[in-house]
């Protein structure tokens, strides 16, 4: 199957994602410049980490005006799997494809470390290969990962089971000391109501080989592959037309 990895000016994890998909997973990927408007027949879209458009104004704020984002929004609306990683998550929030916003980390520090996240939901294309409650060890690298939404939105996320990953300790317990940035409800990742768009702050693409300290990120990329193979996509009849993987 084929992934599209969107490249904004300032993206810096695009090649990490490309490497994980092609060299590690053995699938095809195409780097797509933000000024393009064609997703080139990809079955899944990744918005990578970095500092799109220099993160001017707010993280991810300018990227939503990139021409490719209209195509990404249409792809998402049709039920296609979209994964936003770190800055890609911030872009999805600013583009309105996911609810909420990011604040500065509560301690004002840029956190670059491995953390534990618990998989809360497995019925998204990005978590299909995980089991519920599974604890993954993934790297984070961000200064603005402090997820915020007002109480009504948080309640709706809980009711609709849209909180996909939470920061926990190694045993899978939510603990404020294990929350690296102060995110509301220890949120590390969420999905949209249709469940096909997922954003998370940790970097699964940087945790796909043992030499990098963890292989847990493979599960997330493999989930997308599995979802595309099964045609198990949210959106029902609106589901994105799939080619055999």
């Amino acid at each position: 199957m084929k992934f599209a990895v969107i490249v904004f000016p300032g993206s810096n994890c695009d090649h990490d994602a490309y490497h994980a998909i092609t060299a590690v997973l053995g699938h095809s990927a195409e780097l797509i410049w933000h000024k393009d408007t064609d997703l080139k027949g990809a079955h899944a879209v990744i918005l990578p980490g970095g500092f799109a458009h220099g993160d001017y104004l707010r993280t991810g704020a300018m990227a939503r005006f990139s021409p490719i984002m209209r195509s990404v929004a249409a792809f998402a609306d049709a039920g296609g799997p979209v994964l936003g990683i770190c800055n890609g998550f911030q872009v999805l929030l600013e583009a309105g494809l996911l609810p909420g916003a990011m604040l500065r980390n509560r301690d004002l520090k840029f956190h670059c470390e491995h953390v534990h996240v618990r998989v809360e939901q497995t019925d998204t294309p990005s978590t299909l290969a995980c089991h519920r409650g599974q604890v993954l060890r993934l790297p984070i690298a961000h200064g603005e990962g402090n997820y915020f939404a007002d109480a009504d939105v948080i309640a709706r996320l809980e009711t609709n089971r849209q909180i996909v990953f939470r920061y926990t300790d190694a045993a899978g317990n939510v603990d404020d000391a294990a929350n690296p940035n102060g995110s509301t409800a220890a949120i590390a990742g969420i999905c949209n109501e249709a469940r096909n768009v997922v954003g998370l702050m940790p970097h699964p693409e940087r945790a796909c080989e043992l030499i990098l300290g963890s292989c847990d990120g493979l599960l997330i990329l493999q989930s997308i592959v599995q979802a595309c193979r099964q045609g198990h996509l949210a959106g029902g009849s609106k589901g994105h037309a799939l080619q055999p993987a």
């Binding site: 104004l57 916003a101 007002d150």
Partner: peptide, 8 residues
């Protein structure tokens, strides 16, 4: 539309 993010 742009200068402020109404969420925060």
């Amino acid at each position: 539309k742009l200068l402020a993010n109404p969420v925060i």
